[in-house]
């Protein structure tokens, strides 16, 4: 058993003055968040679609290889050689995409072009359909209480007694959301990419530029969603309140945007939907604005400045709300 000197112990060391002063806060908040079962359920849900994608890539390639081993009738009849043949799923996807984009000469596209088109669309679909739903869940589960709980338990006050600024505090909180959103979007995306690179011949050489785009898209989504959620979280002392507003804004705005776009036949109403703005901008990153389609499948042609302005306004408003909450703690 240790026996300690009961006198007041002088600290004899030097203080650290790291540039990222908020980092300890992030580590503890992540550890605290990971203690919740709900988070593990969401992490599981986040990985399931990527496992599905990996399975489809792997088994469809295996199946294609089996076909190659049988006498190749198409080659005899003058079709592409087995080396030039793509995974049949990719062939089918590229044909469908080309039809939507009005490209008639699909056969004239090179193998690399086909790989690239299929990659952009596959990852866009991956991020915007299953992972987008996961982002919705993880942002609320992780972020709703980040500031609300601090306000309720007065922890905000104790943070500000330490050598950190209000900006450090916000950055620390934001980093927690960014971490979890990247964990549920970028990591599964990389799992899919790695599987494709290992399974499909020559895929990596063609498709590697998708990696920085994936990272950019995931970072963009995590930063905007994170700031928006922190703004909601700082509105009240209850994380439930922030969660309800978050889902209501996402769902109601999406529903209203589709209804108005359908009724007025004006696709610009789609930007009323919070998440549609991400779909459009990430579509721009992945395929030049033609990814984002209205329900009939027609691409929406619009200036990217519209969603940038909308999301920018949301970010600005959220920052103002956060600042106000911290100011009220300072002027309490």
């Amino acid at each position: 058993m240790a026996v300690f000197d009961q006198g007041y112990q002088r600290w004899k060391g030097e203080f650290e003055r790291p540039r990222l002063r908020w980092l300890p806060m992030v580590r503890y908040q992540i550890a605290l968040t990971l203690k919740r079962r709900l988070i593990w359920l969401i992490l599981f849900l986040a990985i399931v679609p990527s496992l599905g994608f990996c399975g489809v890539i792997y088994f469809s390639t295996e199946l294609a290889d089996e076909f190659v081993r049988v006498p190749d009738i198409e080659a005899v009849l003058g079709g592409p050689s087995p080396e030039d043949r793509l995974n049949p799923l990719i062939e089918q996807a590229v044909s469908e995409i080309s039809r939507q984009r009005g490209i008639d000469e699909v056969d004239q596209l090179s193998r690399a072009d086909k790989y690239w088109i299929a990659t952009c669309y596959a990852f866009y679909f991956f991020l915007m359909v299953p992972q987008s739903f996961v982002v919705l869940l993880v942002t609320s589960a992780v972020g709703a209480g980040l500031i609300a709980q601090d306000v309720r338990s007065n922890a905000l006050e104790i943070y500000l007694t330490k050598p950190i600024t209000a900006l450090d505090y916000i950055l620390g909180k934001l980093a927690v959301i960014v971490f979890f959103i990247l964990l549920t979007t970028f990591l599964p995306s990389m799992l899919v990419f790695s599987t494709a690179a290992m399974t499909l011949q020559g895929y990596f050489d063609v498709a590697w530029p998708i990696v920085p785009r994936l990272l950019g898209a995931c970072l963009f989504a995590s930063l905007v969603n994170g700031i928006f959620m922190l703004g909601l979280s700082s509105l009240a002392k209850s994380s439930r309140y922030a969660t309800v507003i978050w889902f209501a804004l996402c769902m109601v705005s999406a529903l209203a945007s589709f209804v108005l776009a359908g009724v007025t036949e004006n696709a610009h109403w789609l930007f009323l939907g919070y998440r549609n703005n991400f779909s459009f901008l990430i579509g721009e990153m992945f395929g030049g604005g033609l990814m984002f389609t209205i329900p009939r499948g027609e691409p929406v042609v619009a200036s990217p400045m519209i969603p940038i302005a909308i999301l920018g306004a949301i970010v600005l408003l959220s920052v103002v709300i956060m600042r106000k909450t911290i100011r009220s703690a300072e002027n309490r």
Partner: peptide, 25 residues
Amino acid sequence: NQHDNFYEDLHAVDFITLMAKLSGL
């Protein structure tokens, strides 16, 4: 402080360690 300002789910050791790290120890 006069008021309690903790993360209620943290252990005392973890809480004090966090505060110490934020203080630059």
